[in-house]
Simulated assay, not measured.
Amino acid sequence: MVPPEADRAACPDRMAGFRFTYEVTALLVSRYGRWTCGWDQSVHHGGPVESWCCASDSVGEAQETAERVVTCLLEWRDWLEDVAERFERLAPHPDASAEDQSWHLERAVTRLVTAVVSSTHASSSWYGLCETTLTWFLTSTGMSSEEAQKAVEVAIGGRFKSHVAPAPTLIDTVGEDLAIRLTGRGFYRER
């Protein structure tokens, strides 16, 4: 599936590279499942994968490219497993009071945003993975994906920017906004 060198060099619109990543993704999904869809989410483009840049820079000879794809897939899997473990630790208990739920949500946002910033180096469009991660977290607690996505969009509200790590106070504000929106209570305000 590696595009010939001539195709990569002669394709200024990068279509050969896009076809390559699409075909590799389709192969990985068919073999291992949907979780593989982020294998090429490079830190250069807002993802946590260090071993991939883009097809034009990362695709080489067939064996070298295959090894790089495997390395990237393993990096992506490690990141997903880390995030899943964080979700388990950060989730509020289903029977928690509104105040406790609010506290857990604020804490989860702070820790998850910080983890995404660290993994992506706050590079180009890092906030996309942040929104996705927070949405996944909320859906892991039982919220519908539509509700979770809307709540995250409102809480972030365009406040995160490419190539800029958010200040801790901004992360805290986003966490508080999300918690209040979802629980109607602010942990720190109520005590």
Rank of each mutant, 00 (worst) to 15 (best):
P94N: 07
T132W: 10
R111L: 13
R31L: 09
E88G: 13
V59F: 06
R68S: 04
I171V: 15
Y188H: 07
I180C: 03
V113C: 03
E61H: 12
D100P: 00
P94A: 09
A55T: 12
P48S: 08
R89Y: 03
V113S: 01
R107A: 02
L138S: 08
Y127H: 13
D78L: 04
P94Q: 07
Y188D: 02
G157L: 14
V154T: 15
F87N: 13
E88K: 15
M1T: 11
S42L: 04
I156Y: 02
H93P: 02
L170T: 10
F187N: 03
V152E: 05
W79P: 03
V164E: 06
H104V: 01
D40R: 07
T139D: 09
M15D: 14
A108S: 05
P166R: 10
D7L: 11
V2M: 01
H45C: 05
C130I: 11
L80K: 09
R31D: 03
A151M: 08
T114G: 04
V117E: 02
R107K: 06
R189C: 00
D82F: 09
R77P: 02
R107C: 00
T110S: 07
R19G: 03
R86M: 14
P168F: 01
A98G: 05
A66F: 04
T169S: 06
E147V: 11
R68K: 11
C130S: 10
G142E: 10
A179R: 02
C54E: 09
T135H: 05
S124F: 14
F20R: 03
E81N: 12
W79C: 08
C37S: 10
A55I: 10
S123Y: 07
F160D: 01
R34I: 11
E88A: 15
R107H: 06
A148L: 09
R34H: 13
P3Q: 07
S58V: 08
V49D: 04
V70I: 08
I180N: 01
G158R: 14
E85V: 05
Q63N: 02
Y22W: 07
L90V: 08
D82K: 12
V174N: 00
V29Q: 13
V174M: 01
V43P: 00
L138I: 12
W39E: 01
L129P: 00
S144D: 15
G33A: 05
T139H: 10
Y22Q: 12
S145Q: 15
H93L: 12
F137V: 10
E85Y: 05
R111W: 03
R77I: 02
H163P: 00
C53N: 08
V2H: 02
G60V: 07
P166T: 08
R189A: 06
G158K: 13
G46A: 08
G158W: 12
R159Y: 03
E146P: 09
S125N: 09
E50H: 13
A96F: 06
D95S: 14
A6H: 08
C130V: 12
S51L: 05
H163L: 03
K150E: 15
C37F: 05
W39Y: 01
S97A: 11
V164G: 02
P168H: 00
F20G: 02
M1P: 13
A98L: 12
F18P: 01
H45W: 14
G60F: 09
C53T: 14
A115F: 04
T132E: 11
S140D: 15
S123G: 14
F87V: 10
A84N: 11
G46Y: 11
G157Y: 12
D177A: 12
V2Y: 05
K150I: 09
A26H: 06
R8I: 14
R31C: 03
V83D: 05
R191F: 04
